[in-house]
Nucleic acid binder design. Structure first.
Lengths: 111, 111
DNA sequence: TTGACATATTCCTATATGGGAATATATTAA
DNA sequence: TTAATATATTCCCATATAGGAATATGTCAA
């Protein structure tokens, strides 16, 4: 079996850094394809392809206005990723605490 | 150009659902490869390959004990994903608020 | 040393990219 | 209608899978 399709879910879709950049850019506000192309250093066909992937997993939504297409982030589609990573928050906080404790123990030893 | 390697960063590594399952399982505590194989419904060679990818991006660490290898999550490597998704938190909260407001406005109209 | 156990690696293959180039489609303006 | 603008799609190709099967490596026990 090959790797899962980029359109299979949000996890696969945001694995591509350019798609994350596009989402970051759209986080400010709605943007047309041309604006995205100008902001990133990517060719227009590539941008359209990335937008298609993002749309496929519901990470963006589109609105037409004349010949322009305006894309917006659908933040809700990012929540599953946020929630999955949150399950490890307790762990890294605990790990940081242990590192801090070790550092303080060292400081106490050699004044 | 092809898709970025699964070992290029944590984003690509966790795009694969079985690797997320492994990380979830390791979140409880350290586990040997055999324990992981028994817990998931995956063949041992596949598990070893997934662990290699996870190790490649620093998402897990290994410790040998006799012929067993014990893997642990390195939660810190998940933080970049958490932080990236957090930049959209404001957006989905805002979107939820608007949905709620609309619902309340509807309720007020038809008693 | 030999065998058993635990884990990793290699080889194979179908599949899905992402970029570049060229082209198609849609919409507005003249 | 025709030209121009805005966006999407298609074709081509090098590359990287993920799983299955077989095998290799490493470690302990007898």
């Amino acid at each position: 079996m090959a790797r899962a399709a980029t359109t299979s879910d949000a996890f696969n879709a945001v694995a591509e850094p350019r798609r994350r950049h596009i989402l970051n850019y759209l986080a400010m506000r709605e943007r047309s394809v041309t604006e995205i192309v100008d902001a990133m250093a990517i060719e227009q066909p590539s941008v359209s392809k990335h937008l298609k992937v993002l749309k496929g997993v519901g990470l963006v939504e589109v609105r037409r206005e004349g010949r322009k297409m305006f894309y917006t982030v659908n933040a809700n589609a990012i929540r599953p990723l946020h929630e999955w990573t949150s399950t490890f928050e307790r762990l890294w906080k605990h790990q940081l605490l242990r590192i801090k404790e070790r550092a303080e123990a060292n400081d106490a030893q050699k004044p």
